[in-house]
């Protein structure tokens, strides 16, 4: 039976929105639609958004497309966005597609928080 918890949890920390992806695998169109409907509406002007991928073990190119859509809306709103906690196998997908050039990628949530708050962070 598929889990029924929401695919993303939203929390706020020091003016930063932290979106924690809860599913191990982001696969079905329904999951992507739910993610999109949850995250896109919270992208407001000057948003500082950290997306925590530490639970995600598998994703497809459709999820990458959604991330680009989110990052575009963040940019249009003059916001900042970091991805963090990306597992090595998923990181390889980012490198193959060269999306590691597109996204600010940080090792963990604290580093992501520092990055979107404009503090120097070594990834």
């Amino acid at each position: 039976m598929k889990e029924r918890i929401p695919p993303v949890g939203i929390a706020y920390s020091g003016g930063v929105t932290v979106a924690t992806l809860t599913y191990e695998r982001i696969l079905e169109d329904a999951d992507l639609r739910t993610l999109e409907k949850t995250i896109l509406p919270i992208v407001e002007p000057d948003i500082k958004l950290v997306m925590d991928f530490s639970s995600v073990q598998f994703l497809t190119s459709a999820a990458l497309g959604l991330l680009i859509r989110i990052s575009k809306k963040v940019r249009e709103n003059q916001g900042q966005m970091s991805l963090c906690g990306i597992q090595p196998k998923i990181m390889e997908v980012f490198k193959i597609t060269q999306l590691d050039r597109v996204f600010d990628i940080q090792p963990d949530v604290p580093a992501g928080l520092r990055a979107v708050q404009g503090q120097v962070s070594e990834s």
Binding site: T60, S61, L64, L66, K72, V93, I96, V102
Partner: peptide, 14 residues
């Protein structure tokens, strides 16, 4: 690079 689609075949080949 910023397109939403078009990475599937690259991943399959990789």
């Amino acid at each position: 690079l910023y397109k939403y689609e078009g990475r599937g075949v690259l991943l399959m080949r990789s």
